[in-house]
Each structure stands twice: as C-alpha cells, then as structure tokens.
Design a protein around this nucleic acid. Sequence first.
DNA 1: CAGTGGTCTAGACCACCGA
DNA 2: CGGTGGTCTAGACCACTGG
Lengths: 236, 236
Amino acid sequence: MPLSPLPAYEQVKAFIKAQINGGHLRPGDAVPSEAVLQQQFGLSRMTVNRAMTELAAEGLLTRIRGSGTVVAQWHRISSTLAVRDIQEEVLERGHRHSCVVLTLEIVSADAALAQALGLRSGAKVFHSVMVHYEDGVPIQLEDRHVNPAAAPDYLQVDFQTTTPTQYLFQCAPLSEARYSIEAALPTKPEAKALGIKASEPCLVITRCTISGAHVASQGRLVYPGMRYNLQGNFQL
Amino acid sequence: MPLSPLPAYEQVKAFIKAQINGGHLRPGDAVPSEAVLQQQFGLSRMTVNRAMTELAAEGLLTRIRGSGTVVAQWHRISSTLAVRDIQEEVLERGHRHSCVVLTLEIVSADAALAQALGLRSGAKVFHSVMVHYEDGVPIQLEDRHVNPAAAPDYLQVDFQTTTPTQYLFQCAPLSEARYSIEAALPTKPEAKALGIKASEPCLVITRCTISGAHVASQGRLVYPGMRYNLQGNFQL
DNA sequence: CAGTGGTCTAGACCACCGA
DNA sequence: CGGTGGTCTAGACCACTGG
C-alpha cells in the first residue's frame, strides 16, 4: 500500500539526491551501504541496489566493489544535447516551417569527401543545399553530401514535406554519428542564402552519420548566430 | 560459469542493439517480449527486464505497458555535452594551462544581474575576468559574477592553481545549471584580451549555476572560434 | 480475457577491498 | 576475514493494453 505513488527505488533515489542537495552529503563523502538503506527503508536489497545503480549511471555516485559508495567528485553537466530535426524543432515551438531547395545534384567526390563517406575518389554522390525557414525567417542552411548506397532515391524526395534528416533516418537508421559545434563565418553564398552579412558569426554544426556498414551522409548546418542558440538545462 | 565475461543482461542488450544495427529491427518494429527473450536466453525475467529497461532509458526502445516494446523512432543524438573545467580539459590534452586574472573586484549588481543571482538590486557581488591559456595561446575568456553567499572567500582564491569552476564546485556543490551556447562576436575588450580581431566569431557559453538554495554564479565563457570547437560522438 | 511491462521480494553466489 | 557491491533467480502482484 504505497501512500506515495512513487516507486520505492525512486524514493530511495530522491532521498539520496536530497541528502546531496541539502549538503548533508558532500562530494567524496561515503553513502550508506545497501545493507543499511535496506534496513532503513524496509526494502529488499535488489530494490535499493537498483536505486544506487541508477544514481551511479547518472554520474552522481561512484561505486567501488568491496569498498563502498561515495558521492561523485564532479557532477557531470550533461543534458542530452539533442541534435534534432529542424522541422520538428520549429513545429514544436508552434511556428511554421518551410524550406527552399537551392541545389540538388550529383557530383563527383573529391578526395576528402570520398574519404569521409568511405568511397573511392571520384565516386558519384548526391549533394543538396537548402535553407530552412521559421515563420518565413531563414534559420538554417543545410549543405549535405549523401552516399547513394544509403539512400538511392534521395534526389526524388519532396523536401517541402520531408527534411533530409527525416528521410535519411527512415531509409538508413542511424547507428553512429560524429559531430562538431563551432563558431565560424558563413561563406559568401551561405550568407546570401541566409540573408545575413558575411561578417555575421554563425553556429556551424558538422555532422557525419553512419548507418550499419555505410557512412550515410555528411552535413554542414549553418545557423545565424543572432537567431539561434543551443540551450540546455542540467539538474542534480 | 560464464564463458564470456559480459554480464547476461549486457549480452541481451548487445543482441538487441545488433538486431537494430543490422537492420533486422527497424524503427517502429516490435521487439520480442520479455517472456520470449527469457525463453531464448534461458534467463529470469528480472535479468531480461533490466536489459530492456536500460535500453529504454538510453532512448533506443520505447516501452508501453500492456502493449509491448518497439524500436524508438528517433535515436537521440546525445553525447554528454561535457561542460567541464577548462584546466582539466587542457591538462587532459597533455598541454600546459595558465591563467591571467584581469579583474577581481566587488561590484553592485544592476537589476538584471541581481535578478539572475536571486539578490536585490544593488547588492554587492564578486566579479572576475580572466583569460585561460593552452600552451601559451589564449583559448578562453571567463567573465563571472559570483554570489558572495555561496563563496565568501572568492576574492582570496589563487587562480593560478585553481579555476573558478573548481573552487565554486568545491564550496558550493552544483545542484542545477542552465546554459546556452551561441555564436557571437566578442566585445572589444574581450577581443583584445584574447588577442583576436573584434570581427572574429566566438563560441559563447553562458552558464548559470545553482547550489541548493543559492544561485551561486553566472558566467560568460568566450572561446575564439578558430581555436576551439565542441566535439561529440554518438553510438548506437 | 490473455499478454504486456513495472515493480518488488528473499534468497543466492561471486569478486573484490580493507583490516 | 567480514563487508562491500555486481549479478542472477524464481517466484509474485499490479496496471495497463488489446482483442
């Protein structure tokens, strides 16, 4: 008969978090052992263990077999930096998304691109450039090279209704990705397409997605610095 | 007598991951129920349940009580966006860290700052500005306002050996943080301190840390765009 | 209704650590 | 050696979903 609707292991987690938050447990301090908590809460060890294991997975505790559990020295500031689909993001903010395709073509990969996509130099790859708008304001330029093996029909996609991210995810489910976030200036054509000055700083995310055995695509996402920022929130 | 050193639940996780990775299970597809996996692997349900629960927590699966488990539609691109201590980061790269303090003073908070720190307008707060160097090259400018209630001895700290992040973490353990990442131009004094042109785009991270009841500090971290980027890697 | 996942128990064996 | 955490079992009750 649980008076509170919270599962028992969540209550244990909350208790430990409260101890840390309130300063009763400080980084480096020893946390009560599972046996003790088991007694205090009147729970089985498996339940207490789940609570502690999850807190350790969150980076809040450090557990050492044979020794004990201590409060972790550095509480990670993580917060799932979600690199998401631009359309989804815009719609979620309750705004209107639209997209203009500037380029959609087949090109020969130069050495660098071929290497990145795991192809031989000179191989044919798809290339697209488009601008995404939020309520009519250009917010992202997307310059992407796609491995035809991963998405053979890429050139036929209607990018008014589907974004490359969505389409690629559908036909080549993501298994790995590498990305980098940096501040940089746009190229001249990019600045023109985004309707900003070439001296306007931009947030540039370059991303390389891998699907199974193929490198599926490589993209460069350019956001005008004045109109976009990445926000995060970290708790506990 | 486990022939493979991997725990059973990890093997189940690996199996499911492999199925997804290999395309045998695609987003939206139903995943075998716990009962089925229990049979196939000859494990107890608790063990299978742990595997599935963890995969769901990682965002790889979506579980619906009473209905079943399906492969999640969007594999999150997360990556512990580690907002870490600059000194730690530099040392980890095997380089030398040094720091020059430009300002260390007490100021009266204006309305905006007071609001952000949860103080009354005009309250005294600590203010520091310093530049961090990696092998002698300026890599970060740190402009920080500190709530005296959280770190009364802030002005006495030796910032040659300890960074504000380290010190604040020690005397006011982190319980919550909010941050924002954007591309922007440095202010004129910032550009001068970093030895860059005022037209050089920078990655600017603004961060507000909360410790228990206090807002501990608010910081503005400016990284020259040419010398710094945030990298991430996502797997699964 | 039968099948699903969410939680919990009371045991158990093991590897490891520190005294 | 006793205490720690890491894992696993064979049950159990529940809330929820679908047909």
